[in-house]
């Protein structure tokens, strides 16, 4: 098993590449989710403000 992780002495490079791959793709996948929450929060805030204005004017 430890032989597999050592990768013939190149372990740091092989597993480092793997880490880069997963970290970058993870950030890439998380970015739209974070942005989605922000967009929806702003949208709801705008809707609430519009509702309040309507109630005041009514």
């Amino acid at each position: 098993m430890s032989e597999f992780f050592a990768m013939g002495g190149y372990g740091a490079y092989v597993w480092g590449s793997l880490a880069v791959f997963f970290v970058v793709l993870g950030i890439d996948a998380a970015a739209p989710l974070v942005k989605r929450r922000r967009v929806l929060r702003e949208l709801r805030g705008r809707l609430k403000r519009a509702q309040k204005r309507n109630e005041e004017s009514a």
Binding site: L25, D28, P32, R36, V39, L40, E42, L43, R44, R46
Partner: peptide
Amino acid sequence: SLLSRARVDLLELESGKDWARQIA
């Protein structure tokens, strides 16, 4: 990743439209 980004961008671009409000 493309579709999930495109969905959010559409939501942002169309935030004045009715369908986006309903989703929110």
